[in-house]
Write a protein that binds this DNA or RNA. Structure first.
Lengths: 344, 344
DNA sequence: CCTGCCTGAGAAAGCGTTTTCTCAGTTCGC
DNA sequence: GCGAACTGAGAAAACGCTTTCTCAGGCAGG
């Protein structure tokens, strides 16, 4: 016959009545304030236990001005990279007693800032993951989103740490690896045009071309998923390249699948490389040569940065840059003699 | 020079002052209450726009008794199945203006009920995904979690819709398919012992054995990830089975990878099947025969059920059962002559 | 024995909304 | 032309908690 306040749920008032004290005292006890007589505290605790009282977090949030929740907005929850970031973030935050609220923008860049704003208002901080919005828009809304940390994107706005993977260096490492294997005609199967990480890859390849004038690098349009790779087979063959750098592992897998259907051998006829080293990359046949990104760790670091901001520690490094690690597997091998374009 | 209340953020009071009205009126305007003079409303809207006023959701939640947020607790955010459910749920909920808060129990079943309780208190409803806790515990806490919907788990507790995939039927379909291909010795590479969906598969196989006495079905211990499958190669070979039903696609992929390393051909020597039809299943070599589960749709349905509960519609069906669809691909083929056990 | 300090706990003021209550000022009907 | 019904908007209560303010009572010191 637990008495209830009007709302039907058990509140601080109920336990106050039951323990014969004021609700202020109940609050003190629940929050470990030691200015309370041990006997009274015990009585309150007993009453709380008996009533199975659990403080209402909303009331608590309003009073304390914090929610113990952080938000993350991702462009596409179906993308393994973002899933991994979410996982790392969620785990790290959970260890500090924070929960995470997710928002998926479904690659609609115009929704991002609204979504981000809404999420931010409900949370103590925000992680913006590879936002597709323009630099101008990002800079404009960044202050209203503080505490904010950026992943795979940078901004001029102050006090916004950003964690970026050095995709530029990564593609250069991969390209270098292919050249070492004797490939002189490479092709890059690009990612989504609005993706900043694609931009970094392109810049990396420019640098690579400058340093290796003897190597031919063809740029091909693309995307970020399986189908992109699968549909790119013709373009890849037409390029005459023997070493293909796919935008990411998904694209590489799609490409390998397409090449396989054409009866071509990887890496016998063509070497294919990916990027990211998603868990599946190890298990493709042939196993995929790729650049491993410590992506879960990225999520974890994002939390650490955000935590510093929330706690106003202020002495934190403004961000950091993650180096991919070349992961050589079976999908890359010695170059054949250059093929003529448009091979059967 | 936007004036601020003590907290630093712009509140309803600031708008009220600027528009020269009471904050009650501001609230009325913001919520589309038409008992406000159009002129006054316009003035308020102008003030709100100029101050970029955004209502504080926490205060709103407290007053309204709802958060427009739902929670989901999953045993392992790294599992593609749960990722897909999360995605479906998140998308469907977003369409109705709800956000989702995630909680990952990391397969620690003792944490589940605490996590669930905490999540629930911050949200308007909860989705419990394949909980690992005991039936007794589940039944006990279910009422305190209402509105609650269960995925891949059932309970006696009232008013708890549950969405389950008919794994029992699924394995029977797969087994039937293998038998049609001439396999007479099958093996089942089981999943986590505490998993209810594993239990359903086992029951399905019992039914299958009863209906097909001439077929031998060996049960092998297992798990739910790549490595499980990879490490199971010896046990699989020792069983002498020519048709292997793996617990899920991940396990199947691990197994295929292990078999490949041993120089065995799939499906020439052994047929391997998975379960779930994760996106990658299409792209393994050979492409994986599996049972497709409309898993994203499951998340979507979960939202619909939960929404009905939140809105107290009450006339909803108590849950539903999803039928997997057999997806025949290249990893299953005609049986060879039965092999002797412990093949080289 | 009185002043002053300290301790413990109730009263009350937030936190930022929504919503009910209330009432002044209009409009309408007879 | 006066009471009744209506309209619009402010005052205040409510949501559930934390925290500051305040004060009664106990105790030590002079």
């Amino acid at each position: 016959m637990a008495r209830k306040s009007a709302s039907g749920r058990i509140g601080i008032a109920d336990v106050a009545v039951k323990a014969g004290v004021s609700h202020a005292t109940v609050s003190r006890v629940m929050n470990g304030n030691f200015t309370v007589d041990p006997d009274v505290a015990a009585r309150v605790r007993a009453a709380a236990a008996e009533l199975k009282y659990q403080p209402n977090p909303v009331g608590r949030s309003l009073a304390l001005g914090k929610t113990d929740t952080i938000g993350i907005v991702v462009p596409d929850l179906a993308n393994p990279t973002f899933q991994a970031i979410l996982r790392g973030l969620s785990r790290a935050a959970a260890q500090d007693g924070y929960r995470v609220l997710i928002a998926d923008s479904f690659e609609v860049s115009s929704e991002e800032s609204i979504l981000a704003g809404e999420a931010r208002r409900r949370c103590d901080g925000l992680v913006l993951c590879a936002p597709r919005m323009s630099d101008a828009e990002l800079t404009e809304i960044a202050p209203s989103l503080h505490p904010l940390v950026l992943i795979n994107r940078t901004t001029d706005a102050p006090d916004v740490p950003s964690l970026v993977v050095d995709y530029g260096q990564g593609v250069q490492d991969i390209a270098g690896h292919l050249v070492e294997l004797g490939h002189t005609r490479l092709a890059f199967l690009a990612g989504p045009p609005r993706s900043a990480s694609n931009g970094m890859r392109l810049k990396g390849l420019e640098a690579f071309k400058a340093a290796h004038p003897q190597v031919e690098v063809t740029m091909l349009e693309g995307g970020s998923d399986f189908d992109t790779g699968h549909e790119a087979v013709d373009a890849v063959l037409a390029s005459g390249a023997t070493g293909i750098l796919a935008f990411n592992d998904l694209v590489a897998m799609g490409l390998m699948s397409g090449l396989h259907e054409r009866g071509l051998d990887v890496p016998g006829d063509i070497s294919v490389t990916g990027f990211d080293d998603i868990p599946f990359a190890k298990y493709t046949t042939p196993a995929l040569t790729t650049a491993a990104v410590p992506i879960t760790e990225l999520g974890e670091q994002a939390w650490h940065q955000l935590r510093a901001l929330i706690r106003k520690e202020g002495n934190e490094v403004p961000g950091s840059r993650f180096q991919p690690r070349l992961e050589v597997r079976a999908s890359s091998g010695p170059a054949k003699a250059p093929r003529s374009a448009v091979h059967g």
